[in-house]
Write a protein that binds this DNA or RNA. Structure first.
Lengths: 202, 202
DNA sequence: GTCTATACCTAGATAGAC
DNA sequence: GTCTATCTAGGTATAGAC
């Protein structure tokens, strides 16, 4: 008997775990947290319900992991966009556009991350996630103020408003069905964001 | 045997029903929808759990009634404020202030109405509620545009942003604990709202 | 390690006594 | 009409065979 698992065993377990997380993510994306029972997730992953507990000690632990992965990706993308070259105003516009576009293009996941009813554990993660989003926006707003491109303001509140605004149109997308109306919605959203931050009219 | 209930009987039933709704409202305000079990609500009303079903056919029906009452009051108040005398810009500022102040002063109820996890039936009502809120704001924005006080814009999106912004600071109130910091928060929120609608700087 | 079967718990809803 | 007691469904988690 070996003292340790062989590398092959470890990677196979890793793979099974990753597969489970991926399956859970897609279930949550499609039907939301409240309908994502252990049974449904296990079915989607092609394993038995009991086997889920080989990888996670509880349903909540799995849910938190699913949330962290997806939310982490989004924060990363927004962070990159907001730190690309350009004036703070340009970067803010681009950031809002990317944030909203990604949300509208993968509405199920975005809704799950931002708004869908979920376990308390996921709710706590969500609060942290929104804080990070807001911190990213606030940083750019502050840069804009320092460079004299934006008027003095509470950047945290502007950032909160931008997050709330995108969330609001996500939950009830004002009839943005096809690509054309989605584009128009994005244009209006970016314009609103720039007014909100007090950028001079272009 | 009488064919009809006597007026006294009817009003007594009415009163019991109202009492139940009031108790349910306070439970929801304090602990949220997800913790507001039939047992908890019945206890709060001083009746047995089974007796709830004398007044409502299901828990969801009771929840919807609770939501409608509370949400209806809020919409009514906002509608009145937004239709008081004054320019559209003044009314918009006052409307946002009242909306946010009421939310922050009765945070439990506001959170229940705007954001807390709830039954699907309540979720549907909430969507309608937010639409009404947005419609009220959008109306004033459109008046501002027509009077030349606000730049051309999609009023629905501005209205959505305002609703989303207040909801966002409600859920995570940026450390507004005492009356002083709440006042400062409200001032900043109103300033943000006016920028968002494109009102010229005062 | 993964399966099947099941224990167990929570919470909504119902039945029948009073 | 209201209470007590109970039924039922749905879903998490566990036990033991393979």
């Amino acid at each position: 008997m070996a003292y340790r698992k062989t590398p092959a065993e470890i990677s196979r377990l890793e793979a099974a775990r990753e597969h489970l997380i991926a399956a859970a993510t897609s279930v949550v994306t499609e039907v939301g947290w409240s309908q994502a029972s252990v049974t449904a997730v296990a079915d989607s992953a092609g394993i038995a319900a009991g086997s889920v507990y080989q990888h996670f000690s509880s349903k909540a632990a799995l849910a938190v992991e699913v949330f962290r992965r997806a939310a982490g990706r989004e924060v990363e993308v927004l962070g990159e966009v907001l730190h690309e070259p350009g004036t703070p105003v340009e970067r803010l516009a681009r950031g809002v556009e990317v944030f909203a576009r990604r949300a509208l293009e993968n509405r199920g996941l975005a809704y799950a991350l931002l708004a869908a009813p979920a376990d308390p554990a996921v709710g706590a993660e969500r609060l942290e996630f929104r804080r990070r989003y807001r911190a990213l926006f606030a940083e750019v707003v502050h840069e804009g103020i320092e460079e004299g491109l934006l008027p003095a303001q509470n950047g945290e509140i502007t950032a909160a408003a931008l997050t709330g605004a995108v969330g609001e149109v996500l939950v009830d997308p004002l009839g943005a069905r096809d690509e054309e109306t989605t584009g128009a919605l994005l244009t209006e959203l970016v314009a609103m964001a720039l007014r909100c931050a007090g950028a001079p009219r272009s």
